[in-house]
Design a protein around this nucleic acid. Structure first.
Lengths: 285, 285
DNA sequence: ATGGCGCTATCAGCATATCGAATAGATCCT
DNA sequence: AGGATCTATTCGATATGCTGATAGCGCCAT
């Protein structure tokens, strides 16, 4: 029997093939470009065959490399399964997580998907409300964790800043109307306060044409050209366009995101999700 | 995704479980006992779980270790397949291998099985004859390789020593008969010469009650209690028992095993099998 | 034609991971 | 009690893999 393959080399090989270049694979596997280059050379030396064709702009697998790629993926997957079998978390149970609905729509799905991968036995119940309502629901003990936007003067451990932008319909110029037609989230919402504060500071007169807790309602009004609105940049759907100072609108301050924790919810599952969210949100800031 | 597993550690883990101890696994993976000890510690640290239970004389997997063992074996097998896919030898063709029939019965099957795994496209034709006959067949060009027992004064590169023992029926005491009834292989055979030489040196009178090239014939005579015989220890079937100096029989010298090569057989396939046999026979000495 | 960009390959120096040999400690057996 | 067998640990050597810098090549825009 030959020496077993080095799965780290295989992981890099897969990343190179999937990204199409050594340089782009490097951050993916947490190595420098030169390390990746040498790893691939080493792998080819070990197996005694060329696996990759280096073009001027892209790197592609040759025929042997394509065969090998299938095995590489199978081995890495099986390695993951082996990990899971031996490090299988024993945490079960539910976590009630509160989150504003714009985050539920755009920020959370990949996060929760990754958490579920690592913690297949933990159930996450999602409650979508505005941040102020979440604070209240948590205080009443009906939530374990809540992702919230910080209100002025509210003590909150901020784990992330989120850009906050004006959005308008791509086919209308609602911002040229006076007073400015604005669609706002419910009173008490940090996003609403950000908008009003900016308009107040800029001495810009406005008219509130729509007020709702619903992100989708806001998007519909803006898309119809009836108003502009302030949204977290990450929440901006493709049907709207970002506008700003070029259109004579005042700059909007960033939103500050934090995680609140119910002190009475002390299960390992809550602990895990809390840690996971903290790390993930901070990483992707 | 976690870092991929180190398959070298898994290989060691499998060897430890299969041999039942760290010390016995060490030569199997080509490492010292201390390296094996540290590897297992490292593996357990990495996965965050104990996998092995260390007893005073044996090491066994715990429940988690048994789960992991299954994955370890699958990963190592898949790694072998990946190797084969990328280093698939293109050697095809046949190799005519001559071997004495006691080796054919007991020594060769696992060897050839392993060779076939690594060289699925090579066909091995097996010719079973006594060593002296094999030497002749090879010289006539009808064999490519031959495993033979060295005759006195024969130049042969010995790759292996094989213990040679007296065998008798478990239900009879044929060795107490005078003159000693002996079943022998054909004249010219090294095993036969070993027996006669030992008896001559011990000045023990004997009677040849059976002479044959057939291992099975010898076994039948001995099993019936009609004679004793000298066999390579590895060839001794369960139906016979090993006897020796305790029964008043002279010690038998080891058999010397070597591989002969037809100089005109220079194909890559012959080369491969030759190398493979050399390595394998020497390793299991 | 030239310069800039994007990419891989290579080199030198450094950090660290792994190894073997020696030894300590524990258990078992005679 | 002594010897054998086993695992764990320590220490020093060294092999290995890494990063950062740079050379070389091809492509593209001016």
């Amino acid at each position: 029997m030959a020496a077993p393959l080095d799965l780290n080399l295989l992981k890099t090989f897969v990343a190179v093939v999937e990204t199409g270049s050594l340089s782009n694979a490097a951050p993916r596997v947490g190595r420098s470009q030169s390390a990746v280059s040498m790893q691939m050379q080493r792998l080819e030396d070990m197996v005694g065959n060329q696996l990759l064709v280096r073009g001027p702009r892209t790197v592609t697998p040759n025929a042997i490399g394509e065969d090998f790629l299938i095995y590489a993926r199978r081995l890495l997957k099986l390695s993951d399964e082996a990990w899971a079998s031996v490090t299988r978390p024993k945490e079960t149970g539910s976590v009630r997580l509160g989150v504003p609905d714009d985050y539920a729509a755009f920020l959370l799905p990949p996060v929760l998907s990754r958490f579920a991968e690592d913690h297949p036995l933990v159930t996450v119940e999602l409650v979508c409300e505005q941040s102020t309502a979440l604070v209240k629901t948590l205080a009443e003990g009906r939530l374990d964790l809540a992702i919230v936007t910080r209100l002025p003067e509210q003590p909150l451990d901020v784990v992330r800043l989120e850009r906050f932008v004006w959005v308008a319909s791509p086919n209308h110029v609602a911002w040229q109307t006076n007073p400015l037609p604005v669609a706002l989230f419910e009173p008490g919402c940090a996003a609403r306060m950000n908008v009003l504060q900016a308009l107040g500071s800029a001495d810009r007169s406005y008219r509130c044409t729509y007020s709702s807790a619903s992100l989708l309602g806001l998007v519909a009004v803006v898309q119809a050209g009836l108003a502009v609105a302030g949204l977290a940049q990450r929440s901006v759907p493709p049907s709207l366009r970002v506008v700003g100072v070029n259109e004579g609108l005042p700059a909007l301050p960033d939103l500050e995101i934090g995680i609140l924790r119910n002190p009475l919810s002390a299960t390992p599952a809550v602990e895990r999700l809390n840690d996971f969210l903290r790390r993930d949100l901070a990483q992707r800031a």
